[in-house]
Computed example of a mutant assay.
Amino acid sequence: MAVFGPGDTRKNLKLAIAGETYEIEEMYPAYIEVAKFQKEKKVHKEVLNGPGVLKKMHKMIYEKALESVNSGKDPELGPIQVCEVCGYTLEGDAPDVCPICGALKEKFTAFE
């Protein structure tokens, strides 16, 4: 159950950052340890290279948004690119190939 929703943007961004931080620092490391214990090398690699990377990108974007809210200014962002296949998210130009799933540049949607 999400603890954020309509209401205070600053609070919602702080909660989103806390959620991403939890996943980066607690949840995914636990998944990795279980994968190591079970000798699931492929899963271990996928967790490190997939969702873990996505969470770090999300956290960075939320932090930038919170800085803007705190300063009372609109955020200065380049286009936000999202891979339609795996959800990889970045600011700037879409890569030729998604570093997470290998989808081609055409599978990225830009939000400006």
Rank of each mutant, 00 (worst) to 15 (best):
P6S: 13
D74M: 10
A18L: 14
N70D: 15
M27G: 09
M27Q: 12
G102M: 05
E112V: 07
E67Q: 12
C86G: 10
N49Y: 10
G50T: 02
P51Q: 13
V43H: 02
C86M: 11
G102F: 01
F108S: 01
Q38R: 14
A16I: 06
P99E: 05
E63Y: 07
K59C: 13
V85A: 08
G102D: 03
Y22V: 10
E91H: 00
P51N: 14
P99I: 07
K107H: 11
P6R: 12
P95F: 03
L15I: 11
P79L: 00
P6Q: 13
E46G: 00
K41Q: 14
G52Q: 05
D93R: 15
T89H: 01
K36Q: 12
G52I: 02
E76G: 09
G87K: 12
T109R: 15
N49W: 09
F37Y: 12
A65C: 10
V53K: 11
C101R: 08
T109K: 15
I80Q: 05
V3Q: 09
K11R: 15
V3W: 13
Q81V: 03
N70W: 00
G92S: 10
Y88L: 04
D8V: 08
C98L: 05
I61H: 05
E40A: 13
M1N: 13
Y31G: 08
E63Q: 13
I100Q: 02
I61E: 02
P51V: 14
V82P: 01
V47G: 06
G87Q: 10
Y22D: 14
I17K: 02
G78R: 08
D74H: 11
G52A: 03
G5W: 10
V69Y: 04
G19R: 12
G5D: 11
E112S: 13
V34L: 13
Y31I: 05
T21N: 08
P6C: 11
E91S: 01
A35G: 07
Y28L: 02
L15F: 12
C101S: 10
E67V: 02
V85I: 15
S71W: 09
I17T: 05
K36C: 09
N12K: 01
N70T: 02
V69L: 05
H44S: 12
D74R: 13
V34C: 04
K45H: 01
D8Y: 04
P95W: 05
K11G: 00
K11D: 11
I24S: 04
A16K: 12
E40L: 10
A18H: 01
V47W: 02
A16D: 00
C98E: 03
V53S: 00
C86W: 07
Q38I: 12
K59A: 14
L77P: 00
I100C: 01
H58D: 06
